[in-house]
């Protein structure tokens, strides 16, 4: 598994969920594998290096401005970072733009994705289980549609306080 710890560290900053919560989804390995499948290792190395060099606050958190200036607005790293966020929330790998892929390449030995013939597939859901573990569902105060059934009549209950749900990590 290529640089899994770095993947989690970067993910934690991008999503504001602690690494333990991300590991708890059980699908971080799949996401990291997906990332390695569509982004070359030397590009990932550069991304993680850039991330490690970002200015940090006293509490060790990456400075938001530094993240925006040096990573999110960077034409090479920004699209990868946004795809990482989208994987965690929606369990979908969104195809990188052709322009990005031509400029920064894709791994030479992409293992074929089941049911997808093109080496740069259209957007796809990473797996059944990944769909179920998407972070968007609990954040909305709900559950993945079609899974993690909350029980008869729960839809009548008052919703969770939305501020509380931010802290319920």
């Amino acid at each position: 598994m290529y640089r899994l710890d770095d993947f989690y560290d970067l993910s934690a900053t991008l999503t504001d969920y602690p690494v333990t919560r991300l590991i708890g989804t059980g699908v971080g390995n799949e996401y990291n594998q997906t990332l390695s499948q569509w982004v070359r290792q030397d590009v990932l190395d550069e991304l993680y290096h850039c991330f490690s060099q970002l200015e940090r606050n006293n509490d060790g958190q990456v400075c938001p401005q530094a993240l925006r200036h040096q990573l999110l607005s960077n034409e090479k790293y920004g699209p990868i970072a946004r795809n990482i966020i989208k994987m965690w929330y929606l369990s979908i790998w969104y195809k990188m733009t052709d322009n990005w892929s031509m400029t920064y390449g894709i791994p030479a030995y992409s293992s074929p994705v089941i049911g997808v013939e093109s080496p740069t597939p259209e957007d796809y859901i990473i797996s059944n289980n990944a769909y179920i573990q998407g972070l968007v569902w609990p954040l909305m105060g709900s559950h993945p549609m079609g899974a993690k059934q909350p029980g008869y009549g729960t839809w009548s209950d008052a919703p969770l306080n939305s501020i509380a749900s931010i802290h319920l990590q």
Binding site: T15, D16, L67, A81, I85, L139, M140, G141, S162, I166
Partner: peptide, 16 residues
């Protein structure tokens, strides 16, 4: 261009 805590707030304060 939201990420991190801002993104969380945008979802949890609007979607419900």
């Amino acid at each position: 261009n939201l990420y991190g805590a801002e993104l969380k707030r945008a979802i949890s304060s609007v979607y419900p």
